[in-house]
Amino acid sequence: MKKVDPFVIVIGYDGSKQSHEALEWAIEESRYRNAELRVLTIWNKAPMAWYPAMLETAAGEIVAESSPEQQAEALSAKAAQAAAGVNVVTRTIKNDSAASAIIEAAREADLVIVGSRGHGGFAGLHIGSVSAQLANHAPCPVLVVRPKTA
């Protein structure tokens, strides 16, 4: 029996250098497989925990910093722009755990692609906590993209 649904690739994108490299890989993989690319950007700041910083621009205007949700939506738009030419769907998701949000989305995926690290605080680690959780718990294959070496 043939599978008639398109191949689905899920990628977690947080704007970090590693997630951008993973996005580039996912775009190429989507082209190769004629797949649907689902880009997830997860934000998790509670509304009352975020207070906008007031910033002064070079022109002397006072502006408020974007909310975490607005920042996530901007990242999604950037990812969609980078993935022009492939079948891309972007989603911003409010969830306390990026790993659990991606694992949930992976239930409908054939492949998950993530960078080896995100914006987490332990820069010396070779793999971040989200990547490790996905590698251990995702219901489909996971590709962890490591940084390119010179």
Rank of each mutant, 00 (worst) to 15 (best):
81 Q>Y: 14
4 V>L: 15
104 E>P: 01
111 L>T: 00
76 S>N: 12
18 Q>K: 12
55 L>S: 07
51 Y>K: 15
60 G>A: 12
46 A>L: 15
114 V>I: 12
73 E>D: 12
137 H>P: 05
143 L>G: 11
67 S>W: 04
124 G>C: 10
90 T>K: 08
63 V>F: 04
43 W>A: 02
25 W>T: 09
134 L>E: 03
9 I>W: 08
139 P>Y: 05
45 K>W: 14
60 G>E: 12
10 V>D: 06
62 I>S: 12
48 M>P: 11
83 A>S: 05
135 A>M: 08
12 G>N: 06
143 L>C: 15
17 K>T: 13
48 M>H: 15
77 A>F: 10
65 E>L: 01
71 Q>C: 11
12 G>I: 00
119 H>A: 10
79 A>L: 07
18 Q>D: 15
55 L>H: 07
77 A>P: 04
69 E>G: 07
52 P>L: 04
94 K>Q: 13
92 T>K: 04
101 A>L: 07
50 W>M: 01
97 S>V: 03
130 V>G: 00
32 Y>A: 12
45 K>L: 13
68 P>Y: 04
23 L>C: 00
111 L>I: 06
28 E>W: 09
118 G>N: 00
123 A>E: 08
8 V>L: 06
97 S>G: 03
30 S>K: 00
92 T>F: 05
89 V>N: 08
76 S>E: 11
3 K>V: 09
70 Q>Y: 02
14 D>A: 03
63 V>G: 07
37 L>C: 06
133 Q>F: 11
128 G>N: 01
131 S>P: 05
103 I>M: 02
27 I>H: 07
97 S>I: 03
100 S>H: 13
105 A>G: 06
52 P>T: 07
75 L>I: 08
86 V>H: 00
69 E>C: 04
103 I>F: 00
141 P>L: 00
13 Y>G: 01
9 I>V: 12
38 R>M: 00
23 L>E: 01
26 A>L: 02
142 V>G: 05
58 A>P: 09
149 T>S: 14
79 A>T: 07
26 A>R: 04
94 K>S: 11
141 P>F: 02
87 N>I: 09
76 S>G: 13
107 R>S: 10
91 R>V: 11
40 L>Y: 03
50 W>C: 05
4 V>G: 12
46 A>H: 14
41 T>S: 09
128 G>H: 04
97 S>R: 00
139 P>C: 03
41 T>C: 09
50 W>H: 06
103 I>R: 03
95 N>W: 04
93 I>N: 10
150 A>Y: 09
82 A>K: 07
